[in-house]
Design a protein around this nucleic acid. Sequence first.
RNA 1: GGGAGGUUAGCUCAGCGGUAGAGCGUCUGCUUUACACGCAGCAGGUCGCGGGUUCGAUCCCCGCACCUCCCACCA
Length: 887
Amino acid sequence: MKELDKTFDPSAFEMRWYKAQEEAGFFRPEAAAKDAEPFTIVIPPPNVTGRLHVGHALGRTLEDVLCRWRRMQGRAVLWVPGVDHAGIATQMVVERDLKERTGKTRHDLGREEFLAICRAWADARRGDIMNQIRRLGASCDFTREYYTLDETRSKAVRWVFSTLYHEGLAYRAERMVNWCPSCATVLSDLEVNHVETSGHLWSIAYPVEGGGEVVVATTRPETMLGDTAVAVHPDDERYKALVGKRVTLPLTGRTIPVVADAFVDPRFGTGVVKVTPAHDPNDFEAGKRHGLELVTVIGFDGKMTKAAGDAYAGLDRAEARKKVLRDLDAQGLRRGEKSHLVPLSRCQRSDTIVEPLVSIQWFVKIGPLAGKAVDATEKGETTFTPELWKKTYDEWMKNIRDWCVSRQLWWGHEIPAWYCPDGHVNVPKPGEGDPSACAACGSKTFVRDPDVFDTWFSSWLMPLSVFGWPEKTPDFARFYPTSVLVTGFDILFFWVARMIMAGTWFDGRAPFADVVIHGLVRDEKGQKMSKTKGNVVDPLEMCDEFGADAVRFTLAVLSGTGRDLPFGKTRVAGYRAFATKVWNAARFALPLITEGDCADASTLDFRSLSTVDRWILARFSDAAGRVSASLEAYRFDEAAHALYQFFWSEFCDGYVEMIKPVLRGSDVPEAEKAKTRGVLKQVLLDSLALLHPFMPFVSCEIREALNGDGLRLAMTKFPEPHADWTDGAAVEAIEAVRAVVTRVRNLRAENGLAQTEPLAIGLELPDGPLSKELQRQVPLLSHLARLKGVTISSKVDVAGAFRDAVAGIGLVVELPKREISSEDRERLGKEIEKLQAEAGKIRARLADESFLSRAPAAVVEKTKQQLEEVSERLRRLESNLLGTPAP
RNA sequence: GGGAGGUUAGCUCAGCGGUAGAGCGUCUGCUUUACACGCAGCAGGUCGCGGGUUCGAUCCCCGCACCUCCCACCA
């Protein structure tokens, strides 16, 4: 058996226990009984580019609490860890690094060489990321670690794309897409952030052929170089005569038609819109309707093309705008400007302004998949916690648009599509290898699509592919569908919704039973963490400073109801204090339970135990019930609070203080002591088990010292409420004792008496079980409240004693001083006033006919009781003022 | 332009039809042989505003105000 150091130092043992648990194989589902019901979680794969941040720490903590709890319940727990290859992010990091080191670009190296660097870079980082997860205590099965770009996952991606293609759900089309000039790739709608920015609305005059001018309003003057029409609303009387005429497009010398189209809002600007089909989604559609030409004036690099004219070609978008405005000025064609809120689209990754451009890309027709996914959630196959997120999910699914899945990157899963010179598209059937000749024309001159898939196109298969799907593996058969997905709302659409689609579409079953959505971790003041603000908290540093146990407990407590959580040092320090408290409680108990016989609590006859022992067992049982019920409901905060409150307030402040006189008393029979030692040990050991999912390290370290079973704790049965440990009478008696003690201490403080001042008190209550029980507790009462005498009777007569009532019991306290000071008088007066007001309100309610006739009988009864208690207390307090002269 | 959420003690948050809770902080006492990362005790709230439903509303309904956030191709 080990000693417990006087100072609590989590760093001394945390990783030692982690390693022991992992090496013992506890984190593998095989550690459970063969027929155990599985409990499965797939880790949301962190980006290989990243370092564990507080958001991850939160998710992993909640997952680990669930996994450790279920494992202790005997479930076959499988928590699969993994890393995401993070397409754009990784490529950007490696490119930047390459540039800094060698000055070269990826194009200088060529595809193969560049990818080799990416691969080496990612491989070097993956281990680190897994170790960061370990530092938190996450009990993942690392023997089943996945990587979104490995062989198994590649097979799944290819199988899925092929399937979709041959089902007609993956197609290649020319569309207006979101193009990020700095990432040099297309983006999906989700990867674009819309930000309202203050900008300008400029008015520009286009000369009308045959005289006059028409004024258009635009926020993007540079795109006018690509205008191929001007549009007005068909019913707009102001411009009716114009329709069908042509206008001169300034700066280009081209003439373009005036068309009528209902998409124009006559009330906006001048009611005339310039139409640039190549650079605006609306105009693109309008262009199709009117058979307009596409003139692409902005290229994929964000610079003006030759089509923009020699004066502009090569200029950056922003420079071109300035020059266009200047040139229009010079020609006297500017007709004013006003400030205007412009909805700008920015690249989520690089923050660059996204350019709507037309290009050929791969899309997935997502409607049918969304339909199946919604059916599943509608049926309750998957639930959301908190429930309100289902609404958000439903809304998005209803208005879902096709998913652009190709990316013009190198780092990622290659698209299994080949094109022959005649433009035939070849996509192998699921399970087929690469084609060697065009299936349509037999051509052997073949090019593979140079693009790769959106990273999420591998992520959305995670719950399937981590088990080796589409192969029919034993793991897949046993562990799919998974139990819970824990994640932040920020990837509800990116990931959660799509995984449900993939699961329901390809397997027919939704990938998880429950989705738990947590809030965003913010700093202590509720500010969003950001590098620029410098308020980013590193969870690993916090683990080193306060212990992973404290970090975990803090995150669990704060996770609340899905709201944002204010996280920071002072809070973690606060919950480290809790870990310290547990530590010190164990240090108290250790010598006591080893100094003499400890009755084996599991064989003890509950009825033979002392009232105090029965009380703590009853309270423990209640706490255990609350912890489990809260975890079932994914209320980690409630579970943690129940633990904290029980352990600190009831076990430490209550029980431990109450058994000191028993265990140390020279007049207590050894047999009684042995029983109490047994209960002390039992409750402490069970509390550590209850605590283990939240604080997996300190709980082991202490169990090891107390019971030599630190390692086995992870596999020990999780405490459940104990039906035999219910004892209303014991609870009532001890609560009464505690209430009396508090009031006596409080009276001492009010009267300026030292806490050590011995007092005599009387308790007035009718004869009965409670009074008999309290009689038995006189030694305890005397010890806790430092009393020199306790009289219990239906009536206690002590002249000049202070009278009050507490917990329905009359309290008579002999205070050493006889006279009541004006200060006492004032305080009593205030208290009496409050009680009188309260009594008045209750009386009024009881006098109300409608209350008596309509409120449930139980409520009326309770109200009557309240009145009685308040009146009783009032009588007693008032009696203190009787017979004493007013100052 | 749609939609969601929030507004409860100095701070951060629980609660939710029967006159309000926690943690931290403040204040007042304590070297009480597990613990000052502690013990004991006190104080502190018209539960955003205005209506309504109800015997009764912080909790339900309808407005309003302010704050978040999400979605959206209006120049």
